[in-house]
């Protein structure tokens, strides 16, 4: 059992607060750290990995401090977001070097390379690797000592769908084996596919924590706003407002469009095209006006 505890951790850089009083406990299994870009995910992961001192608060792994404690790395594997990784080495040389630094040999390196299915390209220079291949070799270097805690910063960035699936399978397997796996992402769907448990961070604050489905429901059930243009805006507005899925409609004269607020997302998306067809109205524009992750997240923070 490996538990990573973040206890009232804050981190500021000069006047900027990157992480604001976050407390969370990461246990065995796969946990997703979700938040928009710039939310403080990397800062948090850097503190979890012992590369950054918290300004206040503590980060511990099974009671051991992570900061200024080199021995803790016997139990931690890290997949950093940054690309740089001794490009002049071959994939095999890189993973072997990582194994040696843990006091292990070529055998452990070979096993890790096999796990990430990189044996076919292991003797090529890393400088010739695609982003997905780099990611997998980074992964091998983090797995070489079979750590009980694996930290991955935006691991799916730049991967093609097949590579993404492979890595997800691998992480899922590691979680099932009882390891503690934490990965960060700003993409909802990625987290949804992989993690049952998620931690949401928005603007440096801990916004939500718990079962993914519950949080996802919170996200989908929030009021959605749409901008709609049609061949007959007023007739469409009258027909839509009769249904309980629509909470409000504004006729925006300057835009020549309807601003619709829907409370039941699922029902509204079915209703809109049906109503339009039944009334012989042509839909010209249907665009969600607050679908950005930031607005989804800020709704969560307010909830």
């Amino acid at each position: 059992m490996t538990t990573l505890s973040i206890d009232h951790v804050s981190r500021w850089f000069g006047n900027v607060v990157a992480v604001n009083d976050i407390t969370m406990t990461i246990g065995p299994g796969v946990t997703g750290l979700l938040g928009p870009n710039g939310a403080g995910k990397s800062t948090l992961i850097n503190m979890m990995g012992g590369f950054l001192a918290p300004s206040t608060g503590t980060v511990t792994l099974d009671g051991q401090p992570v900061w200024r404690n080199e021995r803790i790395y016997q139990h931690i594997g890290i997949v950093p977001e940054r690309e740089a990784m001794y490009d002049f080495l071959t994939g095999r040389e890189f993973v072997v070097a990582n194994a040696e630094l843990h006091g292990l040999g070529a055998k452990a390196a070979q096993k890790a390379l096999a796990t990430v299915e990189m044996e076919y390209a292991q003797d090529r220079s890393i400088s010739t690797y695609s982003k997905g291949m780099r990611q997998r070799v980074k992964m091998a270097s983090a797995l070489v000592h079979e750590p009980s805690l694996l930290l991955l910063d935006e691991p799916f960035n730049g991967m093609d769908p097949r590579q993404r699936m492979q890595l997800m399978d691998l992480l899922r397997k590691m979680g099932d084996e009882g390891r503690t796996v934490l990965f960060s992402s700003h993409i909802l769907e990625e987290v949804e596919q992989l993690a049952r448990h998620i931690e949401v961070v928005v603007a440096g604050r801990h916004a939500a924590s718990g079962d993914f489905r519950k949080i996802r429901r919170l996200m989908t059930d929030r009021p959605h706003r749409y901008l709609v243009r049609s061949s007959d805006d007023r007739a469409l507005a009258a027909a839509l407002i009769a249904d309980p899925s629509t909470a409000g409609i504004e006729v925006d004269m300057s835009e020549g469009a309807l601003r619709i607020q829907a409370v039941d997302f699922g029902r509204f998306t079915v209703l809109l095209p049906k109503v339009a067809r039944d009334h012989g109205i042509r839909l010209l524009t249907v665009s969600p006006s607050d679908e950005s992750l930031e607005s989804v997240f800020s709704y969560l923070v307010a909830a």
Partner: peptide, 15 residues
């Protein structure tokens, strides 16, 4: 500079 030192620092190796 390029951050690759992380592969040395994330090891049980005295600085």
């Amino acid at each position: 500079d390029d951050g690759s030192v992380v592969y040395l620092l994330s090891k049980p190796l005295k600085r």
